[in-house]
Design a protein around this nucleic acid. Structure first.
Length: 546
DNA sequence: CAACGGTTGTTCTC
DNA sequence: GAGAACAACCGTTG
């Protein structure tokens, strides 16, 4: 893993090595990646300091793993967000330049063509972005371009959290909370640039450029807009801020919010669905945090981990672990991940992905995911448990790929972290708590209205059988106009049987793990050993910073 | 080393 | 609707 240099230091080092006199008037490029917004964008503000020309750019990189495999819903969200950004920049007498290619090829051309002296962007902790940054920063140096990076995608600099925790990422929420509390409140968001800030700043753009740098349409990206689902969550900062305002008006709801009590199968979302906006940075997490603080002010309110503040801290938790744990999105080589002998079963995997497991609750959720690009967190639990330790015994990495493709809020760190959680591979270890694909949904939707919405073939089934239609007598199936095995699949596994078998396989995996730890620490076989030291082992190469 | 707590399990009994 | 059994994990704490 390449060592991360705290963002504030990068800016400083390169400023001094760029050779630019302090009073130099800059030609700045601001590189939008995540952080698709004007509000709380410190790197963008830095670009505008002592600046004569600003070029806001977005690079469509064919190499970005989760862009290459993104669903049409994700592309629609992203292009929507870019259009919104372009529109907002135009109100500031600027514009967005969308470029295609690898950043390390695009930027040297831009540096020369525009005579760039400064490059600014938001820190992105994903491994792919880190690799890119290393290359781009090096190229900038070669072109005598100053680089400024700012932390604004997370509440805190994740490296600071790790440093405060003796060089190790916190592995429990409580620990993260304790560390974060010692850091004080997150920084307040910075205001968006104004026309005042833009005085004396130009964005030169010829008519030819106007066309070649515009935000591509879905058709231009080779996608068929008709194959997309309904646009329930349009991308963009304006939409994000509007939605934030709407939710923050519901002060009672905000103050009482307790995540585990929200329903996974409500007919309209029981949570805010601001996650896609936070993922792409259309909404700043710090703006979200401080707006919640305003609402909480002087009122009795719920607390982390279940509160809305708590939800943002969960995000911080997985961002931090993803920075501190190598191979975070894989089982192999991931020191905190349980090593499990998952089955390879392409038929079962396809049935799960394509919503034909024969369990209506599971299939309804997978249908909503594909059509709308968002499902409730607990719905994710249900289908993730089903794919992995609960029923199909398929690797969480397979589920991770499907979610990455289909979820509008498919954040790299959160996706990997939550899949490890749900498969009881890391963070969560009570593997004997298994979600029932039949019972779980009934708690909040007894008559199966949610199932009927997403699986209309089952809409005439009576409530008694809607969660397990294969149990319905033939006459009931005929009256419902749906014969199980013909119009809707039979269940691909017997949950009662496989969930018990799988529980034993999990037990085996865990016992094998403690044995491995003991051996690697030179202890006698069977001797119990504290698992906490696994991370100590992993981290001992790292220099402690405190 | 033992006790404790862990966002969000299910099923059965009272 | 509350509480216990089910089978029993981990990381943290003292």
């Amino acid at each position: 893993m390449s060592p991360l240099i705290p963002a504030h230091l990068i800016g400083m080092c390169l400023m001094s090595s760029s050779g630019c006199p302090a009073d130099m008037r800059h030609i700045s490029v601001h590189w939008f990646r995540k952080g698709l917004r004007l509000h709380d964008n410190p790197a963008l503000l830095a670009a505008l300091q002592d600046c004569t020309e600003i070029y806001p750019v977005f690079v469509l990189d064919p190499g970005v793993p989760n862009q290459a495999h993104a669903s049409i819903n994700c592309w629609r969200f992203l292009t929507g967000a870019l259009k919104d950004l372009d529109c907002s920049l135009k109100k500031l007498n600027s514009r967005l330049f969308v470029l295609r290619g690898k950043p390390e090829e695009v930027f040297p051309r831009l540096f020369q063509r525009w005579k760039v002296t400064r490059l600014t962007f938001e820190l992105d902790t994903e491994p792919y972005s880190q690799d890119q940054d290393e290359k781009v920063v090096k190229l900038a140096k070669q072109h005598n371009v100053e680089v400024i990076q700012k932390v604004s995608h997370t509440l805190f600099d994740t490296e600071r959290i790790i440093a405060k925790n003796n060089g190790k990422p916190p592995l429990t929420f409580n620990r993260l909370q304790a560390v974060v509390q010692s850091l004080g409140a997150p920084e307040k968001p910075v205001p968006p640039p104004t026309l005042e800030d833009m005085k004396g700043v130009r964005t030169p753009c010829s008519e030819k450029d106007e066309e070649s740098y515009k935000v591509p349409t879905l058709e231009e990206l080779g996608l068929d807009p008709l194959s997309a689902g309904p646009e329930l969550y349009p991308g963009g900062e304006q939409e994000a801020l509007r939605r934030l305002d709407e939710h923050m008006k519901r002060t009672g709801w905000v103050c009482h919010f307790q995540k585990p009590e929200t329903s996974p199968n409500a007919l309209s979302p029981s949570t805010t669905v601001l996650s896609p906006y936070v993922r792409y940075g259309c909404l700043s997490v710090r703006t979200f945090w401080w707006r919640l603080t305003d609402v909480y002010q002087g009122r009795k309110h719920s607390q982390p981990p279940v509160s809305l503040h708590g939800q943002l801290l969960w995000r911080e938790f997985f961002y931090t672990t993803s920075v501190g744990i190598p191979n975070f999105n894989r089982m192999e080589g991931n020191p905190i991940c349980l090593q499990v002998d998952w089955d390879s079963n392409p038929e079962h995997l396809a049935a799960w992905r394509e919503a034909r497991t024969g369990f209506p609750f599971i299939d309804a959720i997978m249908t909503q995911l594909r059509q709308e690009g968002w499902i409730h967190h607990l719905a994710r639990h249900a289908v993730a448990c089903f794919l992995t330790r609960g029923d199909l015994w398929i690797s969480w990495e397979e589920g991770q790929k499907v979610f990455e493709e289909l979820l509008l809020d498919g954040d790299w760190a959160l996706n990997a972290g939550n899949w490890q959680w749900l498969s009881a591979s890391a963070f969560f270890h009570q593997y004997y708590r298994v979600y029932s694909p039949i019972a779980f949904g009934k708690k909040t939707d007894k008559s199966g209205e949610y199932i009927k919405k997403y699986l209309p073939i089952l809409k005439k089934f009576p409530a008694d059988y809607i969660y397990e239609p294969w149990k319905a007598p033939r006459s009931v199936q005929e009256r419902a106009g749906c014969i199980v095995g013909k119009d809707y699949p039979r269940p691909i596994v017997d949950h009662e049987v496989v969930s018990k078998e799988n529980m034993q396989r999990m037990k085996m995996a865990y016992s094998k793990r403690s044995k491995t730890f003991n051996e690697s620490n030179g202890k006698a076989k069977g001797e119990k050993r504290k698992a906490a030291s696994v991370v100590d082992m992993l981290m001992k190469k790292k220099v402690k910073v405190n």
